[in-house]
């Protein structure tokens, strides 16, 4: 059995209608999907998710509206109070909104997965010889588009109301890239929740409970130094704070600082822990 022979090359319905020989098929089976199979299957699942996105454009509503609304609203409401003026606040705010938007998209990943898993077609996915990783990771690849749209839109709104990122084109590109990476990594947490929870509704509830403290108890919208000590302590360990600081360094200074390194390491840790948890919980839930 070579690695290029994929999981189920049992042969299609051939026009010549040769008989099926069970013993031969048994001999050809593999005990685990190969890495190559897993990649092909994940991409096929991503294709499915993209098709669905194109047929239901209304699910882009959140990634379109939230960046526009939140950026403008926060800038004009808190700008003066926190940084003295709107234009002084924007370098603080835009990276914060980027992180918040990414988290919102993550949350939708978990909720949608749960909804999807309740559908009949998941029975088929489970009965097919495919890697348990593929149905989870496929939609997440398609979601990269959503993170991309949301981050670029946030940045554009910022530019429109007067944000001038010091990092230039490189800084902006790197900032958006980091946002997308962080969003994608953190999405594994919500995917895991999606495989655990009983209903899409409960995923939504739990995710909200996680998301609000993570975004608001971070340095996303206010500098950590202005907070009481105990809160500041939490804000400093909150991974979202590190992502926000890293994005700030990239956008405002175009500098690849230690914060950027920590943010990337943090994302990797999240994926390493939560991806296997999600896959395991999904395969258990048969």
């Amino acid at each position: 059995m070579t690695t290029t022979t994929s999981a189920a090359t049992a042969g299609p319905v051939a026009p010549d209608r040769r008989g099926v020989d069970p013993a031969a098929v048994v001999a050809r089976t593999t005990s685990h999907p190969s890495l190559r199979d897993t990649c092909v299957q994940t991409l096929a699942m991503a294709w499915r998710a993209l098709k669905k996105m194109r047929r239901k454009p209304e699910q882009f509503f959140d990634v379109l509206i939230q960046p526009l609304l939140f950026t403008a609203m926060f800038a004009f409401i808190f700008g003066g109070a926190i940084s003295g003026s709107v234009s002084n606040y924007l370098p603080v705010l835009i990276p914060g909104i980027l992180a918040q938007t990414a988290l919102t998209v993550c949350m939708a990943t978990g909720v949608q997965l749960r909804e999807d898993m309740d559908k009949g077609v998941f029975d088929r996915f489970k009965s097919l010889p495919i890697a348990r990783f593929a149905p989870l990771a496929g939609p997440m690849i398609a979601d990269l588009i959503r993170y991309g749209i949301a981050s670029v839109l946030t940045l554009l709104t910022g530019l429109l109301i007067g944000y001038r990122p010091g990092g230039g084109v490189f800084g902006c590109a790197a900032g958006v890239a980091l946002t997308v990476i962080s969003g994608w990594s953190l999405a594994w947490i919500f995917t895991w929740l999606g495989t655990l929870a009983r209903s899409a509704q409960s995923v939504q509830g739990i995710s909200m409970m996680i998301m609000f403290p993570l975004t608001f108890l971070s340095n996303a919208f206010v500098p950590a130094e202005t907070l009481p000590d105990w809160l500041e302590a939490f804000v400093k360990v909150n991974p979202v704070s590190h992502v926000v600081s890293a994005v700030r360094d990239l956008l405002n200074d175009g500098a690849v600082t230690a914060e950027v390194g920590w943010a990337v390491v943090g994302c990797a840790v999240v994926v390493v822990i939560f991806a296997p948890l999600a896959v395991r919980s999904y395969s258990r839930k048969m």
Binding site: A7, R28, S31, P129
Partner: peptide, 13 residues
């Protein structure tokens, strides 16, 4: 995984 390569399933729904 081997079983899934041997069986085609058409469920009740």
């Amino acid at each position: 995984h081997r079983i899934r390569q041997l069986v085609g399933v058409t469920g009740q729904y």
